[in-house]
């Protein structure tokens, strides 16, 4: 279990993370989604005690990272930047990490086997392909058999087979009851892997909840309804059991009902309709719509205060 509370981090003028709070519960995969530069890696480094937050706190199983006696046995992480000396062999890299936390050499061989690097274990890491490097990073994360796992963009550089392997690995780890936290800027990938989503933009929380909630809220097919007495239409549809959300631009987003049924119902109540159009939004579009403001915002300015989009 990871608790992130009111985390804020500045790098000089840049606000990398702003007042961010969320949880990573056990037994599920929590996806960490945000556009480039939104602060995912920074947040992960702060969880790992590598970067010091300006404000806020992180606890892992109730304790701060620095208070963990054998951190590798409680938290495993694949961080974005390759954190491996190119001149050292894969086995030696894992061996020194194992030694720091009193983990046996047998376990080093086990994780090498688990990620399929046994045959190249004695080769220098500098000669590894991107995918092999990722696998070694994953092996390091699994070394202490930890209950909490962080992966920063684990599918970077992997081929389709590798992506499938990571997806199954993450789901398997969560099914064993571990807390799995994985970042990505690809909504489509998260839709296949994650049970929960934490979405951030420009360092601030945009949404947190289950994947299903996210999809219900933002994506899929829906009907756009517009009319002069919008509040009345909303009330009628709501009373009839439809999911109705004002889209903030003078129209209603209605889910769970066909356009024809909506039209019939509204007409039967003697209300005028100005628009009644079925819409489809992919998850990717939904994600982009959700984070668009923060992305544009990010491109233009550095020192304007961040507005939380939630």
């Amino acid at each position: 279990m990871i608790h992130v509370r009111e985390l804020t981090k500045h790098y000089r003028e840049t606000v990398a993370v702003h007042d961010l709070s969320f949880d990573v519960p056990p037994g599920v995969v929590t996806g960490f989604l945000g556009p480039n530069g939104s602060g995912k890696s920074t947040t992960m480094r702060m969880i790992m005690g590598l970067d010091r937050p300006d404000e806020g706190s992180v606890t892992i199983n109730g304790r701060a990272y620095v208070a963990l006696d054998h951190p590798l046995r409680e938290v495993g992480a694949l961080l974005e930047a390759k954190a491996i000396h190119p001149g050292r062999s894969a086995r030696h890299h894992l061996q020194y990490l194992a030694e720091t936390n009193g983990i046996s050499r047998q376990r080093v061989d086990e994780v090498l086997d688990l990620v399929g690097l046994t045959e190249v274990a004695s080769r220098r890491v500098g000669k590894f392909s991107l995918g092999m490097g990722q696998r070694l990073g994953i092996a390091a994360a699994l070394l202490g058999d930890p209950g909490v796992l962080l992966f920063d963009e684990p599918i970077n550089g992997l081929d389709p087979e590798g992506i499938l392997w990571v997806r199954n690995l993450l789901r398997g780890l969560a099914a064993e009851g571990r807390s799995v936290f994985v970042s990505s800027h690809l909504m489509s990938e998260m839709a296949l892997t994650a049970d929960r989503l934490v979405v951030i933009g420009r360092g601030a929380l945009i949404s947190e909840g289950t994947l299903d909630e996210f999809i219900a809220d933002t994506a899929g097919t829906y009907v756009k309804v517009r009319g002069p007495q919008l509040a009345e239409i909303e009330r009628v549809l709501h009373a009839a059991g439809a999911t109705v959300v004002p889209d903030g631009e003078g129209a209603l987003t209605v889910r769970g009902w066909e356009a024809s049924a909506i039209g019939d119902l509204v007409m039967s109540k003697q209300l005028a309709l100005h628009e009644l159009s079925p819409q489809t939004a992919s998850l990717e579009e939904a994600f982009m719509t959700l984070t668009r403001d923060s992305v544009e915002y990010h491109g233009r300015t550095t020192d304007v205060p961040v507005t939380t989009g939630k």
């Binding site: 938290v75 954190a83 000396h85 190119p86 720091t100």
Partner: peptide, 11 residues
């Protein structure tokens, strides 16, 4: 090489 991150995460 970035190894410092692995090192400090472990200790």
């Amino acid at each position: 090489t970035g190894t410092i991150r692995s090192t400090l995460a472990a200790t």
